[in-house]
């Protein structure tokens, strides 16, 4: 029965939550930034002057990873894994923390990729009409709304849990 207690250890659950938040959201961002990067390479081959604009668009899907890191850090901080002393969490508390990491983990992963696609299309836009970049950014930023909402949900949940 030892492993059961280990799995249901509150602190371990919280750590898994933090890992999921930073891991999944970061993976989504990495994919998204990669997608835009590929499109941007093509553009810059044709027109090196647009590097700055392209970089701006590429940075957009990077925020999900930061939100994930942020959530992970808040979790670690609340539990005391960082900035100690470590608290002893009950199983229930552990599950609560784990649950609170899920919004940003899941939404971060998918919105990072989706935003990457939208921003990559924005690269196509600035290739033809660089003056319309504001609109391209706005389209990509619409996707991020849901990552922001998920971050908010995650953070409110963590701060709301009594540890």
């Amino acid at each position: 029965m030892d492993w059961v207690t280990m799995i249901f250890n509150g602190n371990a659950l919280a750590a898994i939550g933090a890992a999921l938040a930073v891991g999944l959201a970061g993976a989504g961002s990495a994919k998204g930034v990669g997608i835009v990067g590929e499109a941007a390479q093509g553009l810059v081959t044709e027109d090196p002057d647009k590097f700055g604009q392209a970089l701006l668009l590429q940075a957009l899907p990077g925020t999900q990873g930061i939100y994930g890191l942020l959530t992970a850090f808040v979790i670690l901080n609340q539990v005391g894994i960082v900035g100690g002393p470590m608290k002893d969490l009950t199983t229930i508390q552990g599950f609560l923390v784990l649950a609170s990491s899920l919004p940003i983990a899941i939404v971060g992963y998918f919105s990072g990729i989706a935003q990457g696609r939208a921003a990559a299309a924005g690269i196509g836009l600035i290739a033809m009409r660089p003056e319309e970049m504001g609109k391209g950014i706005t389209f990509a930023a619409m996707v991020e709304t849901y990552a922001v909402l998920a971050l908010l949900a995650s953070i409110l949940m963590i701060f709301g849990i009594n540890l």
Binding site: L70, F73, T145, V148, L151, L152, I155
Partner: peptide, 18 residues
């Protein structure tokens, strides 16, 4: 949608303390 005001503000503060 304006909740992003809080979310992004918190993000900056927390990353800074990280």
């Amino acid at each position: 949608s304006y909740s992003r005001l809080l979310a992004l503000g918190l993000a900056t503060g927390v990353i800074a303390s990280v």
